[in-house]
């Protein structure tokens, strides 16, 4: 179905047009810096996981998660790192882990859960694992957490 019923970009004639990037604080880091940070975090997560510290690993990956334009590679890498944590956690441990996260980390985790659900079949994303986390996270952080995942323009 052709949904582009409007062929002309009328916004370009509007002086007052509100651009996406004006709606949130941009990430001050350079895109290459973001990618390096994300790679370093990925390594830190692996070592934390080998020690069995899932809360530490999750907090690391959710801290300063890449957002905004021009950082697609870092975003994908961070999602991959996060999914590896989610997939290796036992279902019985999830409630304790999500409760131990900071509220900021909980909000970011919710964003990633929705992102993962929007990418069926991407990497080793598994819908049932994401839904399990989603249920426990909502119990711990409330529906406000979901509302924030929807309103936040800093998409991960």
């Amino acid at each position: 179905m052709d949904v582009n019923f409007r062929k002309i970009d009328i916004d370009q004639y509007d002086e007052d047009v509100l651009n996406e990037e004006e709606l949130y604080e941009p990430d001050r880091r350079d895109p290459s810096q973001v990618l390096n940070d994300t790679k370093a975090k990925s390594a830190a997560v692996r070592s934390a996981l080998s020690k069995g510290d899932t809360v530490g690993a999750l907090s690391t990956v959710l801290d300063q998660a890449p957002y905004g334009p021009n950082v697609e590679e870092a975003k994908n890498l961070n999602l991959q790192t996060l999914v590896s944590i989610l997939n290796t956690t036992k279902a019985t441990e999830i409630p304790g882990i999500v409760k131990a996260l900071s509220t900021d980390a909980q909000d970011t985790l919710m964003k990633y859960l929705y992102k993962g659900m929007a990418l069926p079949g991407w990497g080793d994303v598994s819908g049932s694992v994401l839904l399990g986390w989603h249920e426990k996270l909502t119990e711990a952080a409330g529906v406000g957490c979901i509302v924030r995942a929807m309103t936040d323009r800093r998409t991960v």
């Binding site: 509220t103 909000d107 952080a141 409330g142 529906v143 406000g144 509302v147 924030r148 309103t151 936040d152």
Partner: peptide, 26 residues
């Protein structure tokens, strides 16, 4: 109060802003 289920309190002289994130609806 904003639609991210939060309420923010601003002290302009501070300069500080406290944001309370609610677990509930906006």
């Amino acid at each position: 109060a904003s639609h991210d289920s939060s309420i923010s309190i601003v002290y302009p002289g501070g300069p500080a802003m406290y944001t309370i994130k609610m677990p509930s609806l906006p």
